[in-house]
Design a protein around this nucleic acid. Structure first.
Length: 461
RNA sequence: GGCGCCAUAGCCAAGUGGUAAGGCACGGGUCUGCAAAACCCUCACCCCCAGUCCGAAUCUGGGUGGCGCCUCCA
């Protein structure tokens, strides 16, 4: 099994720290707003990865966090008048609900920054004691990057490189512009906790280090997150944890690509964020998953107008094969080892869900051909596809239900049906002028009539 | 400016040494009064240059182009 490790920049054979066990951690959401498609993508990927490890027989512990105290949350709190902790708590509930709607599995361990404050303070104290961090007279505590020689090893930049890019105004109290806050003193009106350095709250990076330590102790197998977190977030996590524990934070670092919308980065300032809620209102959860998993997790996904509609059309097509098989009396049961083997082979190569999904088209094409030629020996294959691809969250709906819910066959108004009936009558007596006129009426009303061997069908356009 | 990632047909997208999966679109065909749908078929030497090798989309070097990060970000 191969995994691309950001740390080495190569695909590596996966060897767990402890045989048969996988400890993984993924950086979750800062709950200053609702979940967007990028959050969903990230949550989905690590859930799939977790499930695959379980399938391979590993005992997996998967931890995820919520950052529930930060500048943006405080800003939102001031904006809305809702206390910051309450705002964060509500947002977590909303996000959890949406993720559940998408049917993304929950991690084994949920962590929240505000529930880890004691650990964070102990962590920061330890770093100060060891000389890796220093408090300022304002009550802030900074990590001294120069004290950590391998700073930059994840993002592959050295201190000089990184320094080169610094472009923000810096706190004069900092010894090095790259030093980052472990603890921030509270300004009037901000939420705070008592600490050896006065009233304050944790910096972003230290939360993850402390939560990781809380959940797993020292070194973990896999640490994941969005690619935008490599620098500085994950770089800083490494510095903190390794300075403190003297041991590597994680053996494998994996990073998923980001979502773009029509070629542009999704951002608040551009106003082009796609919220999970809106997508779920328009498409089935399986559609969203199929679309997102059709690209390797490391690549960016460019969401264009037809990405989701196309995925939904594919799913409808797949489900229609199940429906057809059922109608032909095929008993969907049994095993097909080839399907599962091919799936595993794809996933063993850095979780290649894109390849696994493209295989589906080949399978269904063959099954369809079989069914149409009167060969009904595909019940085992159909059963296996359901079983194997449930790992990606696909084919978990009853075929008829799915088609009913997301297909184009909606209730057709009686008027339209009667037009179609008349049209058929006209056609039977070769009165094509009348037939065409009726067809035009139906089309104008927003429907399409399809003539086929057995009669006709009407679809909404 | 620094660092990183990427570059495969009109579009999306697999493929890490042996002569290019899959999807969408296009084109052709079967069917059809017409049309739609369905089904079948067709469609790329892999950004450029040089090198390594019997052999490279796949490895090395150099270009060119795009993106990301360096400020909060999944």
């Amino acid at each position: 099994m191969k995994i691309y490790n950001t740390l080495s920049g190569t695909k590596e054979e996966f060897v767990p720290l402890k045989e048969g066990k996988v400890n993984m951690y993924a950086c979750g959401i800062t709950v200053s707003g609702e979940a967007h498609i990028g959050h969903a993508y990230q949550a989905l990927i690590y859930d799939v990865i977790r499930k695959y490890f379980i399938k391979k027989g590993y005992q997996v512990t998967y931890a995820r966090n919520y950052t529930d105290v930060d500048d943006k949350i405080i800003a939102k709190s001031n904006e809305t008048g809702i206390p910051a902790d309450e705002y964060a708590e509500n947002m977590i509930k909303v996000i959890d609900k949406e993720m559940a709607r998408l049917k993304v599995g929950e991690p084994d361990v949920w962590l929240k920054a505000t529930e880890t404050i004691d650990d964070i303070i102990a962590f920061v104290s330890g770093l100060v004691e060891k000389g890796y961090a220093y408090p300022t007279k304002n009550g802030d505590v900074y990590f001294a990057v120069e004290k950590f020689p391998s700073y930059g090893k994840l993002s592959h930049r050295n201190l000089e490189d990184a320094l080169n890019g610094v472009r923000i105004d810096n706190d004069e109290e900092k010894k090095n512009p790259l030093d980052f806050a472990l603890w921030k003193s509270a300004k009037p009106g901000e939420p705070f906790w008592e600490s050896p350095w006065g009233k304050g709250r944790p910096g972003w990076h230290i939360e993850c280090s402390a939560m990781n330590k809380k959940a797993f102790g020292t070194e973990i197998d896999i640490h994941g997150g969005g690619r935008d977190l490599i620098f500085p977030h994950h770089e800083n996590e490494i510095a903190q944890t390794e300075a403190y524990t003297g041991k590597p934070l994680a053996k494998y670092w994996i990073h998923n690509g980001l979502i773009k919308v029509n070629g542009q980065k999704m951002s608040k300032s551009l106003g082009n964020s796609l919220f999970l809620k809106d997508l779920l209102d328009r498409y089935s959860p399986e559609t969203i998953k199929l679309a997102l998993l059709s690209t390797n997790y490391r690549g960016d996904i460019n969401v264009t107008d037809d990405l989701f509609p196309e995925a939904e059309a594919h799913l409808l097509d797949f489900y229609s094969v199940y429906k057809l098989a059922k109608e032909k009396g095929v008993v969907i049961d049994g095993e097909d080892k080839v399907i599962d083997d091919e799936f595993n082979a794809a996933m063993d190569n850095d979780f290649n869900t894109a390849l696994a999904i493209s295989n589906l088209f080949v399978y269904f094409k063959k099954i369809k051909a079989k069914l149409n030629s009167g060969d009904f020996s595909c019940g085992n294959t159909l059963a296996q596809i359901k079983k194997t691809y449930s790992l990606l969250g696909l084919f978990e709906t009853d075929a008829e239900e799915f088609i009913k819910a997301y297909g184009k066959e909606e209730k057709i108004p009686d008027e339209i049906v009667s037009f179609a009936e008349e049209m058929q009558k006209a056609r039977s007596v070769k009165d094509y002028a009348t037939a065409d006129a009726l067809r035009a009426k139906i089309t104008d009303a927003g429907y399409t009539v399809k003539i086929n061997k057995d009669g006709y069908s009407i679809e909404k356009k």
